[in-house]
Design a protein around this nucleic acid. Structure first.
Length: 272
DNA sequence: AGATTCGCCTGAGAGC
DNA sequence: TGCTCTCAGGCGAATC
């Protein structure tokens, strides 16, 4: 499940092959993603040079030399891979972006929760990116921000930190992991977060995300980087998917519970 | 406005 | 073996 570390891993994998490359051709085999791929997407891309490969939250943003941009979201099961021209097509290979080098950027997404949308240069802000919270690794994500935004909130802490308006990129896996690291219960009301707890949570989210990026993300089933390799953060997971197994810190069996319709994992002893 | 629920999808795994 | 059912989950949109 691509969360921020997985998307960043993909971005880093793609950037050296994509930046500076002119787009030779584009083939769209399936337009029905989360939103349909607009008919004009191919024309926008072909002949342009890729100037940058950026990321905002879980959105990849490929900037073109004329200021137009391509937004890519991997959804649940999406992959964006750098492949050689002769790589055989697989089921769910929806889009090929063929570069002047001969390499292909191939978008593959069985569940089609992903998206591929144009962001014209004439459009200052894209609706999907407007209103997004700070990046967890940026300086403007700090205890003051998190504590301030949590005031008056009765929502559970876990869905609160998964809300992209509060902070971007924290999905279901890293939310459970960061809360364990911060020693906070996922079900506690966000509004009851003390200032010192907010300090701890910010530090925990930062550390969790940063370490996951270093490991190339977490591969449970689907995820692979641009080179097709899995991420190795799975072996670092403290609580996610470990229901019934002993807490790595205190030995207490890890509990699983639905919070905000999402499976959540925590240690009742370590997390108060 | 905040909180919750829904819906989009396919593949994997469980159960029969 | 093969069918059916359940679950997973990002996140915008709809609803309460």
């Amino acid at each position: 499940m691509p969360e921020l570390p997985e998307v960043e891993t993909v971005r880093r994998g793609i950037a050296p092959h994509a930046i500076g490359q002119r787009i030779r051709s584009v083939t769209v085999r399936e337009r029905r993603l989360r939103w349909p791929i607009p008919a004009g997407l191919e024309a926008m891309l072909v002949g342009r040079r890729i100037a940058a490969a950026d990321r905002r939250g879980k959105y990849l943003v490929l900037a073109l030399d004329n200021g137009d941009r391509l937004i890519v979201h991997l959804g649940m099961s999406g992959r964006l891979s750098v492949l050689t021209a002769e790589t055989a097509l697989k089921k769910h290979d929806h889009v090929d972006i063929v570069l002047a080098s001969g390499l292909i950027l191939r978008f593959h997404d069985p569940r089609r929760f992903g998206a591929m949308l144009p962001w014209p240069a004439t459009q200052a802000q894209h609706p999907l990116l407007a209103g997004m919270g700070p990046e967890p690794l940026d300086a403007d994500f700090d205890a003051g921000h998190l504590h301030g935004r949590s005031r008056g909130r009765r929502q559970a802490l876990k869905p609160f930190i998964m809300d992209g308006h509060i902070v971007v990129g924290v999905g279901n896996i890293y939310a459970s992991e960061a809360l364990f690291r911060a020693r906070l219960r996922p079900g506690m009301a966000a509004g009851r977060l003390s200032r010192p707890q907010a300090e701890r949570l910010v530090a925990a989210i930062r550390a969790t995300i940063a370490e996951a990026i270093e490991q190339g993300g977490t591969t449970l089933r689907d995820f692979a980087g641009a080179d097709g390799n899995p991420g190795y953060f799975r072996q670092e997971l403290s609580v996610y998917g470990r229901a019934g197994q002993p807490c790595r810190v205190c030995g207490e069996p890890i509990r699983a519970r639905l919070i905000g319709q999402r499976s959540s994992f925590y240690c009742v002893r370590c997390q108060r």
